[in-house]
């Protein structure tokens, strides 16, 4: 079943299409959730929440953009909402200025290792790193989403990059462009 078929049949309340939707997109969305939540159990909860939201809102989906991007966005916002609920904003405010690490890094290649590194990042850094690097938000948008200052966002991103370098060395992950 193609993507457009799944969407069309879901809009027609076809239960099989909903099942197919979950089957096709759950691995990718699970990865997104795990990136944000940092552990499997919270990610599973968020995955369920994400699909429930998708079920409720798929009637309003207009096939103008990428369906996968639309799903990822729902997953990200669901996780973000949960994180904001469980973590105080104060925890995200870490006034710690760090210099940018620069472009010197070891060239390694290990997909599993990269995902493990992201998940092992501490909460504020992981969040900012995901939003800035993976999702492509600007620091201004991140500051609005998380309710922190732009400078804090920049600081935390720098800190995240520094931690990533340390973890890359720790796990001997190969980064190959």
């Amino acid at each position: 079943m193609t993507e457009s078929n799944i969407i069309m049949k879901c809009k027609a309340y076809d239960k099989a299409a909903f099942k197919e939707l979950v089957r096709v997109y759950s691995p990718g969305l699970m990865s997104v959730c795990k990136r944000y939540m940092g552990n499997k159990y919270d990610a599973e909860d968020m995955l369920q929440e994400t699909f429930i939201k998708v079920f409720q809102n798929i009637m309003t989906y207009e096939e103008t953009g990428s369906f996968r991007a639309w799903l990822n966005k729902i997953a990200a916002t669901t996780c973000l909402k949960e994180i904001r609920k469980n973590y105080l904003i104060a925890d995200l405010e870490i006034d710690e200025m760090e210099a940018d690490m620069g472009a010197d890094y070891i060239v390694l290649n290990d997909e599993t290792g990269i995902m493990k590194i992201i998940e092992e990042l501490q909460m504020p850094y992981r969040l900012v790193f995901n939003l800035f690097v993976i999702e492509g938000f600007s620091h201004q948008e991140i500051s609005l989403l998380l309710g922190v200052g732009e400078s804090t966002s920049r600081t935390q991103l720098s800190r995240a990059r520094k931690m990533i370098k340390e973890l890359v060395l720790k796990y001997n992950v190969q980064l190959i462009a």
Partner: peptide, 11 residues
């Protein structure tokens, strides 16, 4: 590299 890997990664 992280962006490319993370976006295409499935679990």
């Amino acid at each position: 590299i992280f962006k490319e890997v993370a976006r295409n990664h499935t679990t």
